[in-house]
Simulated assay, not measured.
Amino acid sequence: MSKMDNLRALREARYEQDRAARAGSADGAVRAPAEPRTARPTAAPGAVAPARKKPAARKPAAEPAGGAAPSESACGHRAISGRTCTRPLGHAEKNHRYS
């Protein structure tokens, strides 16, 4: 059975349940479920929320993937992968060249 066949079978089963529920009531309206849903627990008034832990200090950034630190004359734009641009600072090209 494919995924769409499974979805179709579930939808048809749900339709049959709804139809059977409407047929059982006198006015044709859908009956409420047998067990009421429970509400989410809420905090008591005046209760204090527990304090959050402070985030851990971040380590300094590692050396670029190219192996050499970018020179001051390099663009230095970082890619998502962590690589840095090797073009000169303020280059006119719209894309970056990563090592």
Rank of each mutant, 00 (worst) to 15 (best):
T84W: 11
V30L: 15
A23D: 05
N95Y: 11
G67W: 02
A39N: 10
R8K: 14
A49Y: 01
P33A: 09
K54E: 15
D18Q: 07
H96D: 07
G90D: 11
A62H: 07
V48S: 03
A26R: 11
R37P: 04
R37G: 03
A29C: 10
G76F: 01
A51K: 11
P36E: 04
E93P: 03
A29W: 10
A44P: 07
P45E: 06
R58W: 10
P45Q: 04
K94C: 05
R78K: 05
L89K: 08
P64W: 05
P36Q: 03
A34T: 09
K59W: 06
L10Y: 12
P36W: 05
R37A: 10
A62G: 15
G24M: 06
A51T: 07
A34I: 09
E72Q: 04
Q17F: 01
A20V: 02
G82C: 01
A56E: 14
K59N: 14
I80H: 08
E16W: 01
P55W: 12
T38L: 12
A23E: 04
A65P: 09
E16G: 08
Q17G: 06
P64M: 08
R22V: 00
L89V: 08
G76T: 00
A49L: 07
R58Q: 14
P33N: 05
A21H: 02
L7W: 09
A32V: 10
G46R: 00
Q17P: 00
A34L: 11
A79C: 01
P41T: 09
H77T: 06
Y15M: 14
Y98F: 13
N95F: 13
E72T: 03
P88Q: 04
A74K: 03
L7C: 13
P45A: 06
A29P: 06
G82S: 03
L7R: 11
A23Q: 05
A47D: 06
S81L: 03
E63P: 09
P64I: 07
A79V: 02
G28Y: 07
P33D: 07
E63R: 14
R8V: 10
G66W: 05
R58Y: 11
A44Q: 08
E63F: 09
A65T: 09
R37F: 13
A43D: 11
P36C: 03
R22L: 01
A74S: 02
E63W: 13
G46D: 02
R22F: 01
R97W: 10
P55M: 10
A13T: 11
V48C: 00
A26C: 08
C85K: 00
A49D: 04
E35F: 11
P70C: 02
C85Y: 02
A49Q: 05
A9N: 12
R8H: 12
H96Y: 04
K94D: 15
V30N: 09
I80E: 15
C85V: 03
T42N: 11
A62F: 04
